[in-house]
Simulated assay, not measured.
Amino acid sequence: MTRDITTEEDRIRDTERARLSALVSGDVAAAEVYHAADFQLITPIGAVLSRDQYLGAIASGHLKYLTWQPEEIAVRFYGPAAVIRYRARLAVVFGGHHVPLSGYWHTDSYEYRDGRWVAVWSQATAISHGSPE
């Protein structure tokens, strides 16, 4: 089976942008569709969150994305899996503390399950002020 790589790359990019939009809008029901049941997030401070913990924090208001602006999304395929990487600017409120607009690297692993791409792992790394962007 041949796959149109450009089309699949765009499909994953569109999926990631839709996932981010759902997270920023706080639409947990929509966001759940883009996260596998076994999804895990590694936060910029090294905490590990399951899908339920992550989306639960958004639903409760403990975590509120104010903006999430991705730059160009690079995509690599590995059979029925893909890895994406991009820089983004985020502003967030976490536990009542406002984290101003800052730069982050994002690396996400997607798998093709039940006819669609879903995020299975995600890791965010803060870009320090002294490092080149």
Rank of each mutant, 00 (worst) to 15 (best):
A29L: 10
A37W: 05
G103Q: 03
G95C: 00
E111Q: 13
A119R: 04
A31M: 10
P70S: 11
S131M: 13
K64H: 10
I45T: 15
T43D: 03
V99C: 05
T43G: 01
D108N: 12
E9A: 12
V48R: 14
R13V: 10
Y78V: 11
D52R: 12
G26S: 08
S25N: 07
F77T: 04
P70F: 07
A126L: 11
L23V: 02
L63E: 00
W121C: 14
L20Q: 08
Q123V: 14
Y34K: 12
W105R: 15
Y54Q: 13
R87E: 12
D108P: 00
T6P: 00
V28P: 04
A119E: 08
E9Y: 03
A81K: 07
L90Q: 15
L49E: 10
H35C: 15
E16M: 13
A30K: 09
R76E: 09
T43Y: 10
D10G: 12
L20I: 15
V93F: 01
H106N: 13
G56S: 07
D52G: 09
E8S: 09
T15G: 12
W117H: 02
Y78W: 05
Y54E: 14
P132L: 14
V83C: 04
R3K: 06
R116K: 15
G56L: 01
V118A: 03
E16K: 15
Q69R: 10
G95S: 03
G56H: 00
G46C: 06
S109Q: 10
D10L: 14
A88H: 13
P44A: 04
K64G: 02
Y112H: 13
L23W: 06
D38K: 10
G130W: 05
Y112G: 00
I58Q: 05
E111L: 15
A47R: 14
A74Q: 11
S60V: 06
R51M: 13
W105I: 12
E71M: 03
D4L: 06
E72D: 07
Y34R: 11
V28T: 15
Q69C: 02
E16L: 13
P132H: 10
W105E: 13
L41H: 08
E133D: 13
I5Q: 11
R85L: 06
A31N: 14
E72V: 02
D114N: 13
A59Y: 01
D14P: 07
A81G: 03
I73N: 04
E16H: 11
H106M: 10
H97A: 10
I84E: 03
E16W: 08
V75L: 03
I58H: 08
P70L: 11
D10I: 05
W121H: 14
I12Q: 08
L41Q: 06
E72Y: 00
D114L: 09
V75K: 00
